[in-house]
Simulated assay, not measured.
Amino acid sequence: MRTGPCLALAAALVFVSGTAAFADQRAAVYTCHFARYGQVVIDTRLESPAITVGGKTYAAQAGAYFFQTEDGKVAFFKPGMKAWSYADVRVDPDLKAAEASRCRRGTGKR
């Protein structure tokens, strides 16, 4: 596995991450369907950001335009959080297989 692109991406994500962009977001839970990964749920609420893939939930950190787990699951969003892309660096080390999806926004309440 090549680590160069992943390390460069990680450095870029750390550089652009910050709480200012996150504070401007509307906290919600986004349910997305990606052809390659199936259903991915992205919880953007301040108290519990997380990404759920394959029924397993991973705590996530918020950045400028992304949420990322410690083990390399990354959800990117466009302004307004209407379109999301998702990739798993363990599956796609170069992140070239990231897919875009329109997602359903919810509050996370049942």
Rank of each mutant, 00 (worst) to 15 (best):
M1T: 07
R2N: 15
R2T: 15
R2L: 15
T3W: 12
T3N: 13
T3K: 08
G4V: 11
G4I: 11
P5K: 00
P5R: 00
C6Y: 14
L7T: 13
L7D: 15
A8M: 05
A8C: 07
L9C: 12
L9Y: 12
A10R: 02
A10Q: 05
A10D: 11
A10T: 08
A11C: 08
A11F: 07
A11Q: 05
A12F: 05
A12I: 01
L13S: 11
L13M: 12
V14K: 09
V16P: 14
V16S: 08
V16W: 13
S17P: 13
G18S: 04
T19E: 14
A20Y: 07
A21S: 11
A21F: 11
A21H: 07
A21K: 02
A23K: 01
D24W: 09
D24M: 04
Q25M: 14
Q25E: 15
Q25A: 11
R26F: 09
R26W: 05
R26S: 12
A27Y: 09
A27H: 07
A28V: 01
A28S: 06
A28D: 04
V29F: 10
T31R: 03
T31G: 09
H33N: 07
F34M: 00
A35H: 02
A35M: 01
A35P: 09
Y37I: 00
G38E: 01
G38K: 00
G38A: 02
G38V: 00
I42N: 01
I42Q: 01
D43Q: 01
D43Y: 04
T44V: 03
E47W: 08
S48W: 05
P49L: 02
P49Y: 02
I51R: 00
T52C: 06
G55N: 02
G55I: 03
K56E: 14
T57G: 06
T57Q: 05
Y58F: 14
A59K: 07
A59V: 03
A59N: 07
A60S: 07
Q61D: 12
A62Y: 06
A62R: 03
A62C: 06
G63A: 03
G63M: 04
A64D: 12
A64G: 08
A64E: 07
Y65H: 07
Y65S: 09
F67N: 04
F67E: 04
T69K: 02
E70T: 10
G72H: 02
A75K: 00
F76K: 02
F76G: 10
F76E: 09
F77K: 01
F77Y: 13
K78W: 15
K78N: 08
K78Y: 14
P79S: 09
P79L: 05
P79Y: 08
P79W: 06
M81F: 12
M81H: 09
A83D: 15
W84C: 01
S85P: 15
V89L: 13
V89R: 03
V89K: 01
V91E: 15
V91I: 10
P93E: 10
P93L: 08
L95F: 15
L95S: 12
A98Q: 13
E99F: 06
E99M: 03
E99V: 02
E99Y: 04
A100M: 10
S101Q: 06
S101D: 10
R104W: 04
R105T: 14
R105D: 13
T107E: 05
G108S: 06
K109F: 14
K109Q: 11
R110T: 09
